[in-house]
Simulated assay, not measured.
Amino acid sequence: MKVLGINASPRGNESNTLQLVKSVIKGAESEGADVELIDLYKLQIEYCTGCGACYATGECPQIDDFEELFDRIVNSDGIVFGAPNYINSVPAPMKAFFDRLSDVVHCQMLAGKFGCSVSTAGGNKADVVVDYMNSVLTNMGVNVVGGLGVVMGGDPAAPQQAAGTAEELGKNLVKSIRGEITYPDQEELHRQNTEYFCQLVKSNKEKFAHDYDWYVRMGLIK
């Protein structure tokens, strides 16, 4: 069982968000998961150009670290996103990474995986960022087990004070992977999304050749 934490903060070891991500994966590790932590700022992720090559061929012409990172996600059972609040959204490297995942959304490639998100904010709306990152997970077919937003409010100890809650989030992530916690409402949403994208690619099977072949291989298009 593998849980992958992805932190998008430019502050390195001084990152408050990093402390939360570490607490989540510590909780996951205590439940028996193998864990890995990635600093997104140490990777090169180029911007999506909207060329549509991923829909047509399944490959992106950009030469960077995206494919390696995505392979790690594919080989994980649980995903933890972490990002500070940058004007009610995520920092640029995380957004660039998300924008490169459109083919993953089309194909619902991460169906069957579980995830959660954490964020810190200086003043407010950390929860807004958590909700956004969790929505990205949902859009890719992931079952979301929860999230945690921490407002610093001038208190440098805030992440430590939230560590116990973050660890519980990590434990619930692993329990969900093991099937001890289920999400029937989300599963129904994923079913509806898969049905929608099946129809979309069937109607555009020449333009979305890779996506069409994906659903054929999955047995969802006969």
Rank of each mutant, 00 (worst) to 15 (best):
S76Y: 12
N124E: 04
V105Q: 07
D127F: 03
R72T: 07
I38N: 04
T165Q: 15
G32F: 08
A96M: 14
N75Y: 10
A162W: 07
S89K: 10
Y86P: 04
V35I: 14
K125V: 09
L40V: 14
A158P: 04
Q160P: 02
Y132E: 03
V145Y: 07
M140K: 09
I45H: 09
G123P: 01
G27S: 11
L110Q: 08
E36V: 00
N88L: 13
G123Y: 05
Q62S: 06
V150F: 11
N134P: 01
V80M: 06
V35Y: 02
L69M: 13
G50W: 05
D155W: 12
V136S: 02
G50V: 11
K42H: 14
G115M: 09
E36I: 00
N139M: 13
N88F: 15
G115T: 09
Y47C: 04
E36R: 08
Y47E: 14
A92F: 08
L137P: 10
D103A: 06
G58N: 12
K95Y: 06
S30Q: 14
V128L: 03
P91F: 12
A53T: 02
A33D: 06
D64L: 03
Y55N: 04
E46Y: 05
L101K: 06
N75E: 14
C60Q: 13
A92Q: 12
